[in-house]
Design a protein around this nucleic acid. Structure first.
Lengths: 120, 120
DNA sequence: CGCCTATATTGACATTCTTCGATATAGCTG
DNA sequence: CAGCTATATCGAAGAATGTCAATATAGGCG
């Protein structure tokens, strides 16, 4: 590492800017990346899409029929989406009807937009 | 699976809607989740933030100094971001100056928004 | 050329993710 | 209750990801 004083204005004897720091703190970055990680799976995106389309009327076997994975896998992804607060379900008799939690998705959308705007 | 006719209007002897299909096709979902997967890492989010802040003036050792990971890890994340088309770099002498590719990020933002709006 | 420095790549290792068969749970129906 | 069905959970196995030490590459300087 090249020697340089923090107070100096010199653009560099070498390269490095005087201790550059991210505006996003690690905790925020972590929280956001967790949510992005939930979205970052094709099956989960398709589940969200299906749920949004047929709000409150989609049971697990519908999803299983519409997606190229088996039932335990569908349940697994539903659990992740639920743990992330993006969806929820209501049991009616034998069936579990899943639906998107619009306010949560709206909040995530807002958070994402804010992040993108910060990259402006 | 419960027997049912596609043409019937009956809300179900059981649960399932007549063959529900995602509006997002698998290819689109896959492409989008790939990009989301790139964003879904705290270090990468912070890198994007740092690059956006100091456009065109950030070399790898700056990033290494600002982030809690070692140089090979920084290079690794830079490579992923670059492969995803989100950033690029210019070599000047010994140093590699990285910068965000604003048009690509803008396109991603648009794509993401469209997706969120589809969940409307 | 020989040395030094910034960055990239390689290889190994640990961790996490994804999937699915098998099984458990829960609620209906007879 | 017995049997059936929808969903959840468990456990195992493979794939993908993240990290870093070690090493390679490449460009500057004396």
């Amino acid at each position: 590492m090249i020697e340089r004083t923090e107070t100096s204005e010199t653009p560099a004897t070498g390269c490095c800017s005087p201790s550059l720091a991210p505006r996003i703190d690690a905790a925020t970055a972590h929280a956001l990346s967790d949510d992005l990680g939930i979205l970052a799976h094709p099956i989960r995106l398709q589940i969200l899409d299906l749920l949004a389309q047929h709000n409150g009327q989609v049971c697990v076997c519908d999803l299983e029929a519409a997606l190229p994975v088996k039932q335990p896998t569908v349940s697994h992804h539903l659990r992740l989406l639920r743990a992330a607060g993006m969806i929820d379900c209501e049991r009616r008799g034998l069936w579990a009807y899943y639906f998107v939690r619009r306010p949560a998705l709206e909040a995530l959308r807002t958070r994402l937009l804010a992040q993108f705007d910060a990259l402006r």
